[in-house]
């Protein structure tokens, strides 16, 4: 894909449009990481305090990196799941419902089967992943078999999920207090809680699927040119259903980490994940029309979103400004990554 547009710009050299577009998210992330400490530096300077740039920064510290990691880990899993779908040129908006259902069913199973990881209750974890896979599978089937656009099919499935989670809980919250399970948050290795490493492990798994399996290559094939893939003998419908199933599993992992983070499973567990994950994927440089991007882009995107969320509070800006900044960033990211010469019309 990228090679084609590179040929249309013969300038070549170090600063091709493609290179800029490819590395822009990383540059934005680095700029943000350096920008917030600068505001802290300015603030202390105006108050007449000694402040050595970066070294004295509260934002630019390991402790705060861990805080950003905690905030980012569940969102990263959800965003990685939806990355596969966006690479295929579809969209999955069912994450909030899927997360709520997985979180609530996990909590019911976990509490019902013993309430601690040291008992058979550990089976609640694979159960939750299975539930996520099942919801994604149904989502994919509805999209492919009924030929409903993925946008509508998944949005509707998300509402069904939220409603189902509410029926299950009756509006109550389930508390998962097991010390062993909560060690996801409370136990730290090298300053970072375990949940960060779990997220990292699943990110590596996602990267493996993306680049070392036929399924991963097929995602790109479908996103890059569905007609071509179809006529080359690829079962596109099957790839799509498998993509949604895979996304469902990653949503379930996100749900488990979200429950591990606050120790509560409820209908509201899925709240806000749609905005955060779609924003992160797009800001990370994965193109909405498919075929371009990947899970590493998503990692950068999730970090950008969470660095902004954290940094804004650290420099003392109100949260409604954060939403505005993130919205602006989405428009910028899409505008930057869109090659307007090759797009003749926008739906």
């Amino acid at each position: 894909m990228t090679d084609i547009s590179a040929q249309t710009e013969p300038l070549g050299g170090l600063l091709t449009r493609d290179r800029i577009v490819k590395w822009a998210p990383v540059l934005v992330l680095v700029a943000l990481v350096l920008l917030f400490p600068f505001f802290e530096f300015l603030e202390d300077l105006l108050e007449g305090k000694d402040h050595f740039y970066l070294l004295d920064s509260r934002f630019f510290s390991i402790r705060n990196a861990a805080r950003i990691g905690i905030a980012a880990a569940p969102a990263l899993m959800v965003a990685v799941g939806v990355t596969f779908i966006i690479i295929m040129g579809s969209i999955d908006l069912s994450m909030e419902g899927t997360i709520s259902v997985c979180a609530v069913l996990f909590a019911f199973a976990f509490l019902g089967w013993g309430g601690t990881l040291a008992s058979w209750a550990w089976l609640a974890i694979p159960t939750a992943l299975l539930v996520g896979a099942l919801l994604g599978f149904v989502n994919g089937l509805i999209h492919v078999r009924l030929k409903i656009p993925s946008f509508m099919a998944s949005l509707a499935m998300g509402f069904v999920g939220t409603g189902f989670a509410l029926v299950l809980t009756g509006g109550d919250r389930l508390r998962v207090e097991d010390e062993l399970f909560r060690s996801l948050l409370t136990v730290r290795w090298l300053n970072f809680p375990i949940m960060c490493y779990v997220a990292l492990a699943f990110l590596l798994l996602a990267w493996f699927i993306q680049s070392h399996t036929a399924l991963g290559r097929n995602f790109y094939a479908v996103g890059g040119g569905e007609q071509l893939a179809q006529s080359s003998g690829l079962n596109v419908a099957r790839v799509r259903v498998m993509g949604f199933t895979l996304a469902g599993i990653f949503f379930a992992v996100g749900a488990l980490l979200a429950v591990g983070r606050i120790g509560i499973a409820e209908t509201a567990t899925g709240n806000n994940f749609m905005f955060v994950s779609i924003t992160a994927v797009v800001v990370g440089g994965t193109a909405l029309w498919g075929g371009i991007g990947g899970v590493w882009n998503t990692l950068v995107g999730v970090l950008i979103v969470n660095v902004i969320n954290n940094g804004m509070v650290v420099i003392g800006l109100p949260s409604y400004v954060q939403d505005g900044v993130l919205g602006t960033l989405v428009i910028l990211a899409v505008a930057l990554s869109t090659n307007r010469k090759s797009v003749t019309f926008v739906k």
Partner: peptide, 16 residues
């Protein structure tokens, strides 16, 4: 009124 958002904002407060 959101538990997860509160956790994130509190973490940022602790940083600041």
């Amino acid at each position: 009124w959101d538990t997860q958002k509160a956790a994130q904002i509190m973490a940022s407060f602790i940083t600041r």
